[in-house]
Write a protein that binds this DNA or RNA. Structure first.
Lengths: 356, 356
DNA sequence: CTGAAAGCGCTTACAG
DNA sequence: CTGAAAGCGCTTACAG
């Protein structure tokens, strides 16, 4: 092979002058192959001699070569960008989810593009479609609550965009679902309260239109029923997942002469609302009232007394959802990983046996 | 001009078959100009006849044409992506900053790529460089505390990447700075406490290595001094911006026989630490202790009693920092806008005149 | 003010 | 297993 090794040595300084990033043509020339072969190595085609592959890879390493994502994007007609589409959950949830996704794409050449949206606005699905098509997204992660919107998923399937959905219950094929099993977490809270001796228990739920609220409620109520405790409807108050709605619900539950000895709330925001009403009314937590939240947000440990809460492994969820997009072929592995995403109760100082 | 208007009408169905997105060639053909002219319209070149421009724009609108970002990226050698680089501040801060940046780039064809990093790890600047060069970023926003790292800014200047820095004080040319004037916010807190009649006031500061901590401390101390109140060094405790460090600092300040009547903290996390110690020790807020935080995080309104706190217009900051990247030419306007980013005290229920 | 040619750095058919 | 040609959809010189 005609490798030109007889050229006069070039001074180091002169050699570094062309500081432009190396292209596929440079690598091809330096490895003495065609650019097509370099392309094959890049795309892990099996149709390359082992020896050739190693030679090309050595040159790539030596010159720290990475292919231009725009050239690839143009030729492939798709990008190396992962989109994260979300509605309006809490900040910590979103940030943790982003960290998880970034864990998955680290050193993969992919990047994360964020797309918050308002699922109540009529054109939001169109907005997501433009986002996906314009950027030729490799795939999108759908975070609750937009993940629950079947019309959105249908649109993505329609335009051939791969996606993964994070939700409290299965809504799609296993290979595109990360199931968070909120029901189990709520059941654990119920078991814990029962084991402490509570019998008169109340529940503040999220909006019934939210799948997660439905699951958490069902998990809690069913687990109590299994242990022989029936929740009367007066002990279940629907609220809006917000602090203010939690305050209003707590006022309802704590104003009567017959107070419950424990309250479970569908998220920590509403638990903070219970704290406010209790503190204001001179009801001490946990002596006179036990409280459990859901989410294990930063708020939980900052309240006093520290709030026991059900933790969702949000970062893991983000990581798994992103890796499902990167390796759709290893669907089985992802499904297994997904199965391990389980909530569990973090016990702090907000519960004790009821005072008789 | 040879516009072919005499063809037989094509059935609507057949016409929609080639559902591929229109390219610059299609637009050129349909508008009866060269693709170069379409390109000029796209890039707002003045060298286009008004009439021609309007004709091209009409066709673009009709077919909902948007240029392919990858083709442009390849030809331009730079992308239409804005990077947001941040270290490890609180989630709400990051999410608000992201919303602000998205406000600025909405409908501009730009997208936001996020890049959290660990400024304590040795290779982090290299990581940012790879991120910027690989994605050919149009520019990056530097969020505190990485925004304070001059080595990072130098590297970006070195590789010719435009950037904007958000910081509590000017660190760079005005056209790349969003100054948050933390000093003023802290001064407002000082004035408020003084006006309520407090004289024995304590301060829990963030780490002195943080510019924001330095500014908040200076603003508070100076404002009190101006009103004739000197803070003895025993009333100033340095902590780490975390909840736990706030707890430790509060224990120091509240354990002695001579308690201060008010505490100002460098952020809300540490204020929550003060709450915990006070509640646990039976010191009631605000009757026996006034507290003011900084950030106006969600935590502030969820604590009980609701915490007065200095609010930074984080979303505005994000919007301005991003628009500086989009329109470096309109630097003057951005500087003016930047000047309007001022913190202000949100008064809630955590302060009252001291008990004598 | 407008356009024909060449090129950005990759890939997809198509040959061999 | 390997390569030469054409193309992805834009832009930058260079002419006129």
């Amino acid at each position: 092979m005609p490798r030109k090794k007889t050229e006069a040595p070039v001074p180091a300084q002169a050699r570094t002058v062309p500081d432009r990033a190396k292209t596929i043509n440079d690598i091809a020339r330096l490895a003495d192959v065609s650019k097509k072969t370099v392309s094959r190595v890049l795309n892990q085609s099996p149709l390359v001699h082992q020896e050739t592959r190693e030679r090309v890879e050595a040159v790539m390493r030596e010159f720290n070569y990475t292919p231009d994502p725009f050239a690839r994007g143009l030729a492939f007609r798709r990008s190396f960008l992962i989109g994260m589409v979300y509605d309006n959950p809490t900040a910590q949830y979103i940030v943790n989810m982003q960290y998880g996704a970034l864990d998955a794409i680290r050193d993969s050449g992919f990047e994360l593009v964020v797309h918050p949206c308002d699922s109540r606005s009529p054109g939001y699905i169109d907005g997501v479609r433009r986002f996906v098509q314009q950027q030729k997204l490799h795939g999108v992660m759908l975070v609750p609550r937009v993940s629950e919107d079947q019309a959105l998923a249908d649109m993505l399937a329609d335009i051939g965009c791969r996606y993964s959905r994070i939700a409290s219950v299965s809504l799609d094929e296993a290979s595109r679902m990360v199931i968070t099993h909120d029901r189990d977490g709520a059941a654990e809270a119920a078991d814990y309260l029962q084991s402490l001796g509570h019998r008169d228990i109340a529940l503040i739920t999220g909006p019934s239109s939210y799948r997660s609220a439905h699951e958490r409620t069902a998990g809690f109520v069913d687990a109590l029923a299994k242990r022989g405790i029936e929740l009367p409807s007066t002990r279940i108050v629907e609220a809006g997942y917000t602090f203010e709605s939690g305050v209003a619900a707590a006022e309802l539950l704590l104003s009567g002469s017959q107070r419950p000895s424990a309250i479970f709330t569908g998220n920590d925001e509403m638990a903070a609302g219970v704290y406010k009403v209790a503190l204001r009314s001179g009801i001490s937590i946990p002596q006179q009232l036990s409280v459990i939240g859901f989410d294990d947000s930063p708020l939980a440990s900052r309240l006093w007394p520290a709030l026991s809460s059900v933790r969702l492994p949000v970062r893991d969820m983000g990581r798994i959802a992103a890796s499902m997009l990167l390796q759709p072929e290893s669907g089985a592995a992802a499904v297994v990983a997904s199965a391990s995403v389980r909530p569990h109760l973090i016990v702090r100082d907000s519960c004790q046996p009821p005072a008789y």
